[in-house]
Amino acid sequence: MTDDRSDQALLQAHVDGDADAFGELFARHRDRLWAVALRTMGNPEDAADGLQDGMIAAFRRAGSFRGEAAVTTWLHRVVVNACLDRIRAAKIRRLEALPDDVEDRGTLVATAVHDDQPDVAAEDAERRRRVLAALATLPADQRAALVLVDMEGYPVAEVAVMLGCAEGTVKSRCSRGRTKLAGLLLDLHRPVGDLPHGNPPVDGPVQPTVRPRGPPAP
C-alpha cells in the first residue's frame, strides 16, 4: 500500500513519532540514493555501507531539516556526505580494486539490453568499465560532483546544496574532473576519422636495445 503523504509530511511524521514514516520516505528515494552511493563509492559493498550510514544519519537528524530545500536534496546530501566520509576514512584505493568491482548490476543491465547483439553488448560493457575506472581515479569531491551532475542529471544549484558548497565550486569540480576524464578516455570520444589512440604509427624498423651477441671484436 502506498502512502500519499508528501516527502515533507512523511519526514515531519517521523519526527513526530510515526514509526513507519521514515521507512516509507526512504524507500521512495532508495534507488536513486543507491545509484549515487554506488557510483560515488565505486563498488556495491562500500556503497551499501555508505547508504546505510546515510540512512542512519538521516533517521537521527530528521529534526534538523528545516524545509528550505527538497527532502530528496537533503537525503542526497546526507548520503553523499556519509559516502565521502567513508572514502576519506578508508582511503579506498579505487584504482587497485576496479577490475573486479566495476562489474556491478548497472553494467549487467546495460549488457542485457543487447542480448541479441553480443558484440554491441560487449562494447557497451567495456565502455562502461572504462568510464567507471577513469571516474574512480578522480578525487572524491570531483567524483561526487560528476556523479550528481553528469550521471544523475541534477542541476548544479541543487548539487551545490547537496554537497554543501557554492555553485561555482561544483562547476569547477566538474570541469576539472571532465578534463581529466577526457584525457583518460580519449579513444572513447574521439570522432571517427581521427588518429586512433594507442601506439604511434611505425616509421621505421625497431632498433634493438641490446647489442647483438657475437664474438668479441678483435
Partner: peptide, 21 residues
C-alpha cells in the same frame, strides 16, 4: 568543450539505472 561534452555523454551512459539489490 567538445571533449568535455563527450565525457558528459559517456558519464550519462554509465548511469546506474537498476534498482537497489
Amino acid at each position: 568543450t567538445p571533449e568535455q561534452d563527450a565525457v558528459r555523454r559517456l558519464l550519462a551512459d554509465a548511469r546506474h539505472d537498476a534498482p537497489t539489490p
